[in-house]
Write a protein that binds this DNA or RNA. Structure first.
Lengths: 217, 217
DNA sequence: GAACTGCCAACTGTCGACAGTTGACAACGC
DNA sequence: GCGTTGTCAACTGTCGACAGTTGGCAGTTC
């Protein structure tokens, strides 16, 4: 039981969750417009809370607001991918450095576990699920113990997911990614911040390059 | 006259500007609450646009939302300062590296000019104005030519300004800061990304330490 | 006197309606 | 035919009012 728990999310909060899901899964495709009255009716709420939800998602970069025109799902674009990965690199390299000096034994166990699951999945011959890639980076971020950096990384990763859905990207090259991840864990385990940062940079640069290839075809 | 110019910022947009100013200058002091009806009346608008403005500022970190209680100006707090400067260091070090490899001659002129103005100000014996410090960092960020990083840096610096107003911080040590800035410009001029990053890290760590001292007294 | 209970005012969350703007299409002039 | 102008429907921006929640205060009980 949760006695005085306001598990009662506001309508705006619920709308944020639903809309975010629909945007990230591509249910609302990139480039399309979000009609306030239409969506509000569909969700069974009035325009007020929905507007708040839209503005919130816009602040996360999942929607673009145009005055008097409405909200649009941003489309993939080369410059945006580059700019986003420059930000992601700055954040995640810093996180990798911090993780190397702050990680606990529990963090290491978790990191190894994610890597192990990736290898198990690899043996099945199935494609590398984004879920596992995200899980790895999430675990690493947590090990860095820097709430503000973690917050920003989460937002950036969210936008990367959106970009992927926009350009139906191939799944990441599992073998290369797995090796990068393993090397990262090793560096973090050894407390080698410089190495961790270098590996992370190489890893992200590879992922970015792949997305740019997907974009230009 | 501005014929078809939509220089006509929406009421919500105007409210954002006014409120941001009031929060950053401490006119609405840290810890205090923003009453929707009261402020809306004062601004001569209804609660709708004001709510949007409040939510927007909350997404920038200048206000904290508490369900069913309202919006509060966040108060200074040691952990928050540390976490914020970890984020700022990650972003500005990356920016310094990028600036070292991307800066144009015009960028260098601008950077030198800001440094020169700081030295001129120093000779007058007046305290180091935040304006000059901000101008330097802003110029450096522009030279990095990374829009997403620039955007985040601006948000972080804004929160630093808020923290300063919260703990009526001493102005930065002009001499040390000026030296740091000069060294940074030199590294950027030489295209030495590693050096630029190192100097920036030292600079920010010094500024952070000073803020923490101000906080504990 | 301390703890509990029930009320109350203040405020936020939500709604429906009106006003202003935009983009598109049709009518018009050349 | 092509550019211009006028009109209109659709949509966003804004408003005022109602409903639900919160924290505090008075009253009650032990």
């Amino acid at each position: 039981m949760t006695p005085p728990t306001p598990l009662h999310l506001s309508l705006a909060g619920q709308a944020v969750d639903v809309l975010r899901e629909q945007v990230l899964t591509g249910e609302i495709p990139p480039g399309s417009r979000v009609n306030e009255v239409e969506v509000a009716q569909k969700l069974g709420i009035s325009r007020g809370p929905l507007r708040e939800a839209i503005r919130h998602l816009a602040s996360e970069g999942l929607l673009q607001l145009v005055p008097h025109r409405g909200a649009f799902v941003p489309d993939a674009d080369t410059d945006e991918v580059k700019a986003l990965f420059e930000l992601r690199t700055a954040l995640e390299c810093a996180a990798a450095e911090l993780a190397a000096s702050r990680r606990t034994d529990v963090d290491l166990v978790r990191l190894h576990e994610v890597c192990a699951e990736s290898r198990r999945n690899y043996k099945t011959g199935q494609p590398f699920p984004y879920r596992l890639d995200l899980a790895f980076h999430q675990t690493l971020i947590d090990a860095a113990r820097s709430p503000r950096i973690a917050e920003q990384v989460r937002l950036v990763q969210q936008r990367v997911v959106l970009l992927r859905s926009a350009l139906d990207d191939d799944p990441p090259h599992q073998h290369a990614s797995m090796d990068d991840h393993d090397e990262l864990v090793k560096a973090i385990e050894n407390g080698d911040a410089a190495k961790a940062s270098t590996v992370m940079r190489r890893h992200l640069s590879r992922v970015c390059a792949q997305m740019l290839t997907s974009l230009n075809r």
